[in-house]
Nucleic acid binder design. Sequence first.
DNA 1: TTGTAAGCGTTATCAA
DNA 2: TTGATAACGCTTACAA
Lengths: 344, 344
Amino acid sequence: MKQQNVTIKFIAQKAGVSFSTVAKALHDDPAINSATRERIKAIAALYNYRPNILAKGLRSRRTHTIGVILNDLQSPFYSEIYKAIGDVLHKKGYTMFLADSKYDEQLEKKNISTMISQGVEGLIVSSVSEESENIELLVNEGVKTVFIDNRPARNDICCVYVDHEAAAAQAVGHVIAAGHRDILLLNGPEHLPSSQRFKRGYIETLASFGIPYRPNLVKHNLIDIKITAQQIERILEGKDTVRGDEFTAIVTLSDVIAIGVYEAALTHHFSIPGTYSVVGYDNILATKYLSPPLTTVNQPKEQTGLYAINMLLDSIEKPESEMVQIILTPELKVRSSVRPLEKT
Amino acid sequence: MKQQNVTIKFIAQKAGVSFSTVAKALHDDPAINSATRERIKAIAALYNYRPNILAKGLRSRRTHTIGVILNDLQSPFYSEIYKAIGDVLHKKGYTMFLADSKYDEQLEKKNISTMISQGVEGLIVSSVSEESENIELLVNEGVKTVFIDNRPARNDICCVYVDHEAAAAQAVGHVIAAGHRDILLLNGPEHLPSSQRFKRGYIETLASFGIPYRPNLVKHNLIDIKITAQQIERILEGKDTVRGDEFTAIVTLSDVIAIGVYEAALTHHFSIPGTYSVVGYDNILATKYLSPPLTTVNQPKEQTGLYAINMLLDSIEKPESEMVQIILTPELKVRSSVRPLEKT
DNA sequence: TTGTAAGCGTTATCAA
DNA sequence: TTGATAACGCTTACAA
């Protein structure tokens, strides 16, 4: 156990100089005699001196800390993103706070509040909403923020996101091209911006092929394997507004949801793509090795993370960097979970 | 943009009282008249007052921040663990720093240093080593630490980990029971404690069945899909110390490695379990849905996280809590990636 | 019931 | 070339 904190003051005592001399020496201030400087540095190293970032931050407003607030820490989709973020931060000497908002606006607010309290220099947020008091909060407090995964309604905020409508169009277009016309959409929570955009893409694509939109073919649920499996179960057991024979293909907002369909296939003994064709979204790592390999729409996750963190650090380190909004394009990955339907 | 920080002083000015009165009111100090207290609180709320945790921490030594240092942020194995950790922390009002050591001792050291500088109250570390100067550092600095995934050589440190030798025994035992005798071990980096334990379990289990141990059947690589696929490739192309026909089963330190084998199977057109039987370790989410579903040994990940964080918070919040070392037991999940071998 | 003052470990300005 | 001092925002005696 440590008796006394090794502070600048402590080093000063050991070196027999004033503490401000130590501070300067440690900062390679040219005003300090190089001999004393080296002596002080040696003592600092000996006692394993480590600057107190709290004190530093209090005084200089630089904490070298940034916060990342996401909706599901466990999701492989997000983990690829913050992996990339973490790597850049580490290289640039920053530390990362990570928090989970679980798709909940209140939780998100609390997370933002805590991070501000902690003195973060910037925030990367995959927000629950595109227009909420949380966003106002961020703007009012003057916290540098980059949104990912969606685009805030205000256009004075940086963001980088994938065009979810285009993604839905690719997914839906693909199953329609395979001959499907009755397409179930397993969407995320209704209030989620990405759900809304994805649904819009779904509806528009149906329209463009002259397929009428049937609202009971759209299901909103949390993005979760078990919950998705239960949703399918409800349908198969006739406890839903749609019956199991009213659709032949399933398009999902997320690969995690798609895996939920796989889970249901396992327990309810239906076949993919025999009974239902399935298309995912995100292209998380495992999808390629699923049984059958999942046809999905790729989101450039690493790129998202890199753009976001670089934009954020830019805006922190450069006084007046511009507002940038980056839109990334999704890309269909055809594998084996969609089967061509015989024309009837 | 904010003009002035909303501090206790600022509130005091607005309320026309001294700043220490504000501090007390905000802390529900009974010494303060309830009327003024409410008035002050109202003003604080109005201006969206948010305490500066840096200043707080500097003064009170409580930052309500803990650090989590892991070896691979992206791995679903770890993400299930820190998901659990994050949830508990959030409930108890703590914030989480997260850092990636990438199985590198130097990086680990830097991460520990930074976290200490940041004033974390405790650390959860999946260390690169069980006996390193990093651990000494932790002990010398008096940082409350819980190790996960391995057991430090010193027994004055809390830890919670799964018995990797037992896990290896289950995996190897299972393929031996299926008639395999030539078993390739795809292990993690050689210096990694879990690699060492797993290998020990592998060797001992072979011995207990009277199967001679052949060192060229053990491969050490980073835990990574691509790198694993390349390892397999090297073997299949005759560029390794072992040939492709010298083994019939593959046991791996991690499901991620097992997925690497699946990747190789895809590109090199061999069959699992036809050509090689495969057993994973960890039981990450996706394994159940792979093609074929992966037989693997489960690690209780959520439990690991929960135990670890609860132990840590205990030792932070209670003056003299005991040193605890928790060993969790692995459990074989039989699925379809191992095939019974005809006795010859 | 409220106010004053010192101190946490830095940085930064000014004086010696 | 070095030292004294104030300030960052907060907590906490202690004084009024």
